[in-house]
Write a protein that binds this DNA or RNA. Structure first.
Length: 259
DNA sequence: ATGCCGAGCTATGCTCGA
């Protein structure tokens, strides 16, 4: 089965791209971030017509996440357990597969703006909350996928300019320590289970011809729990929709799980 | 140092993203 994550930067603006992409890439699960719409605006019917049920945690203007799935999604949970948050950033759910129940945690991680900002303080607290909650979630759900827009470039090779951008947002040691703490829980970065092309990124700035110059960051990730690692067949970034007219600034990341 | 782009809002310039 295939699972994908895509920050669409407004589902209102990008619905047709999502439908076109799903028609060409009929994944089993697609996790979306930055819906930028309230639940009542979510295009449930259009996605149902495309073959997907949706679990939605929307928010007007900012944030908002959804799990689209060909199979029903059960036991849906919104936000991080035990962490009060005004933002709609995390939605979790379980899908039943031939190989057993699969827990999916879809996150739109805090951006953090700059290391000396209040938003960065919020990012650190949010990541602490996520980590503590995930430890329990992993105990309860051995087959777990954590995917989404992490807003962290985990290593220097995940940035187009690791030297010039050292210490700036997405590149700070604090953010990378939080990413590594997630790995320490027993999660693996599925993208790095395989040899990958150098300069592989999932986000490119709209400005200054970022995509055309491949000035990007790899900040969208698919992490899998240890029992799933032997079942991961591939993880690829699909840059095709980044070339479409009026694209999201993020590209989808697709992970394939056996059987 | 800032805007460079793009989206949303009750807007006609601002905030935010990354």
């Amino acid at each position: 089965m295939k699972l994908a994550t895509w920050n669409v930067n407004s589902l209102t603006a990008r619905l047709q791209h999502v439908l076109d992409w799903l028609a060409a890439n009929p994944v089993d699960v697609l996790c979306l971030q930055e819906l930028k719409m309230s639940d009542d605006k979510f295009p449930l019917e259009a996605l149902k017509d495309a073959g997907y049920d949706s679990a939605v945690f929307g928010q007007k203007t900012y944030n908002g996440v959804a799990i689209l799935s060909r199979a029903p999604v059960r036991d849906v949970l919104k936000n991080i357990g035990g962490f009060a948050d005004d933002h709609s950033r995390v939605i979790s759910g379980t899908v039943d597969t031939p190989a057993g129940a699969l827990r999916i945690v879809n996150g739109y991680f805090v951006n953090g703006q700059a290391p000396d900002s209040e938003k960065f303080v919020y990012k650190m607290k949010w990541l602490d909350g996520l980590h503590d909650w995930l430890r329990q979630e992993l105990a309860a759900h051995p087959n777990l996928v954590l995917l989404g827009d992490f807003n962290v470039a985990p290593e220097d090779r995940d940035s187009y300019d690791p030297v010039g951008l050292a210490g700036t947002i997405h590149h700070t040691p604090q953010e990378r320590a939080h990413f590594n703490a997630l790995l320490q829980l027993g999660l693996a970065d599925s993208f790095r289970l395989f040899e990958q092309p150098p300069k592989s990124y999932s986000w490119w700035d709209y400005r200054m011809l970022g995509y055309q110059k491949n000035r990007g960051l790899r900040i969208d990730h698919v992490l899998v729990s240890q029992p799933l690692v032997p079942r991961v067949k591939s993880c690829v970034i699909d840059r095709v929709p980044r070339k479409w007219e009026k694209p999201s600034d993020h590209a989808p990341v697709i992970m394939e799980l056996a059987p």
